[in-house]
Amino acid sequence: MKRFGAIALSVCLAGPASADVDAALDRHILPGLDAFADAAAKLERETAEDCRAEALRPAWNAAFDAWTQIGDLRIGPSETGALSIAFWPDARGFTPRTLSRLVAESDPIVFDPAAYSDVSIAARGLYALEMLIHDPAFADYGRDSYGCALARAISSDLAGQAARLEQAWEEAFAETLRTAGAPDNAIYLDEDEAFRALYTQILSSLDFTAEQRLGRPMGEFDRPRPTRAEAWRSGRSLRNAVLAVDAAHALAKVLADWPLPETDAAVARVHEAAAHIDDPSFQDLTNPQGRLRAEVLQQAVRGVRASLETETGARLGITPGFNSRDGD
C-alpha cells in the first residue's frame, strides 16, 4: 500500500550542513525509535501478564503514542518496515476479515511467534491490536481464550518489529544519512540530498494528516465517512492527527538551525482548532457543526505545511514540484 509519494524538489541555493541531519537523528529520530521499541516491549510484557482487552489498552495507547513520533517517516528501513506496524488505511477491510478468519479457524499459528511474522500484515501491528481489544466483535474474550493467544501473538510480533526497525536505523541507515556525499554512499550523493529527504518526510506527514487522517472520514460534504477515521474504535483519531503534526514540527525544528516563528504559530492554531472538536473519534462528522470544526482543523494543518515551505524550504531554495499526496 503506497502511503507517501515522492515530492519533486529542486535546489537553487546551497543547502544545509550535515550537522542539521545529525541533530535530526540524535535528537528526534533515534530517540523516537528507541522510545517506540521500549513501549512495544512493555506492551509485550503486559500482554504476557494479562492479555485481556481492558488490561492491554493503557500499554497499547502508550505504544501508539510513541509510534506517532516516528511513524510517518517512510524512508530507509521504515519505507517497508512501517507497513506491518501500521497497516492503515485499510480501505478494503482486510483487518477484520483476517482476524475473523484466524479466530474462526483457531489457527495455531498464534502459538508460534516466529511463524506469526508470515501472517498477512492486516493481522499484525497497532491497528490489528486496536480492533482486537476495542471492537466489540472481538474484544470480549477471556484469559484462556484464543483471543488472548492472538493478542499475545500480535503484541510479541509488534515488539520484534519495533526492535528490528530501531536496529536497522541504528546500525545502518542513520550512518547512510550522516555520510551523505561520501564516495561509498550510493544513496545520498551530497549532504543536501540527505537534508531534503528528511524535509520531504515532514511535508509528506503533514499531507497525510490533512488528506487521510482528516480527509478520509470527512469524505464529501453530503457523504461523510466517519468510520474511515484512523483508530476511531479507540477514540484516538484526533489525538493521532495532533501528535503527528507535533512530531513533524519537532523534526522540522531540529532539522533547521534557525527559529521558525510562523510554523510555531501555525502549530498553535492546530491545537486551538483541535480543542474545539467535541468527538475525538470524528464520529460527529455527520453533524454540520462537527464537519465545520474538522475543516478548520484540516486547514490549520495545511497552514503548518505552508509555513514550513516559507520558513525552511524557501530559505534554502527548495521548491516543491508536484503534490506528494498520491496515496491510496
Rank of each mutant, 00 (worst) to 15 (best):
F282E: 05
D65E: 11
V11C: 15
A250C: 04
A182C: 05
L25V: 09
A8G: 15
A53G: 07
P261S: 03
A306Y: 06
E49V: 12
L165A: 02
S145T: 11
L158Y: 07
D26Y: 04
L251S: 01
E175I: 06
G142E: 11
L251V: 07
D328I: 14
G81V: 02
A182M: 08
I70M: 06
T286M: 11
L206W: 00
F36V: 05
S234I: 01
L189N: 07
L43F: 01
R124F: 08
A300W: 05
L25E: 01
A48S: 14
L238K: 02
I29D: 00
E44I: 00
L30G: 06
T176F: 09
A162D: 02
L165R: 00
S78Q: 06
G215N: 07
P31A: 08
E166P: 03
W232Q: 01
P77Q: 03
C51W: 03
Q283N: 11
D20H: 10
H249W: 15
D246N: 12
Y199W: 13
V110S: 01
E211Y: 08
D118H: 12
T319P: 02
A186P: 06
L25Q: 04
P261F: 04
R302K: 15
S106H: 15
V245C: 13
D22T: 10
R305L: 05
A115M: 04
A139R: 13
G32P: 01
A149I: 00
I154N: 00
E166C: 12
S120K: 07
W258M: 02
R325W: 09
W67E: 03
A210C: 06
K2A: 15
P320L: 12
M1T: 13
R291M: 10
R27E: 07
D246T: 10
D140C: 03
L260M: 11
P136V: 04
V267F: 10
A241E: 02
R225A: 14
I202D: 03
T80I: 10
E166W: 08
S155E: 06
G235D: 03
P113F: 05
F4P: 03
I29C: 02
D190S: 05
A8Y: 11
C12S: 15
R213N: 04
A153G: 06
D50H: 06
A24C: 07
E211N: 11
H28W: 15
A250W: 01
A66R: 01
E175L: 12
A41M: 07
W169F: 09
R315Q: 08
F195Q: 00
D279S: 09
D38H: 11
R325A: 13
S324Y: 05
D192G: 15
W258S: 10
V110E: 01
V267C: 10
L203G: 02
